[in-house]
Design a protein around this nucleic acid. Sequence first.
DNA 1: CAAATCCCCTGCAGGC
DNA 2: TGCCTGCAGGGGATTT
Length: 267
Amino acid sequence: MPELPEVEVTRRQLQPLLVGRTITRVWTGRSSTFFLTPPLRLARRLAGRRVLALDRVGKYLLALLDDGARLLMHLGMTGQIGDAPLDVHTHLRLRFDDGGPEVRFHDVRKFGKVQILEPGRSSPRVDRLGPDALGVRGDRLFTGTRGRRAAIKTVLLDQAVLAGIGNIYADEALFLAGVRPSRRAARVGAVECRRLAAALRRVLRQGIRAGGSTIDDYRRPDGSPGQYQEDHRVYGRAGEPCPRCRTRIRRVVIGQRSSHYCPRCQS
DNA sequence: CAAATCCCCTGCAGGC
DNA sequence: TGCCTGCAGGGGATTT
């Protein structure tokens, strides 16, 4: 479930483990779904490279290398990078010239991805992304939802409109903004868009501060779980009382995704 | 063009 | 106890 906050927490903790260090040895697994760049080529491209920076865009991490290439990484559903477990689900291991701790990419479900982006080149995966959700403003949400007949929840999950929102933070922001997830996106007005944008920024920042949400798989680079799940107001709380009005939280499926909302507070 | 559907992958919960 | 089914979900590809 890594969404923007989980990826950002990963970026911050991973930064000192990658940036400034030179990769000496690379070990890879063989999963063809995980490696967008074939494992042997990826290993050859990484060996000897120094990492200059670690950036995030939406749910993607981008490690800038000293030859101008970039390593694109996505955590998928169950990815963990850093001091991750070493077992059959470990797909990538990086060792460094300083003899310090190795960095591992572990991913049980293999929805995660790694890919080398050669110097000056990008990827449709990145190019397609809308603006990063952490700085979203109401007007962006407003223009991004015009002409969209789909549910507002579905549009929030569209990475081309906003990059970084996933199922949890969409539900949480919609609750804070008082907007029902099933509402048609185009019917959400400018005022509500502004309120929704503020709610998104708020839940994303709160999520980062709490170290992300750990439902079952997510772990920070050091292996510790996040804490934001404790603060979830509606996500995963179907049947529990709304924290604002005590009405039972409802769970419905919207766009193949479970959605949670308060039928009284959200319209 | 938008939206709906399918698929990838694995562990786990629930039913019998 | 063990087997089977269904579900979770990010996101790309395909179909409607």
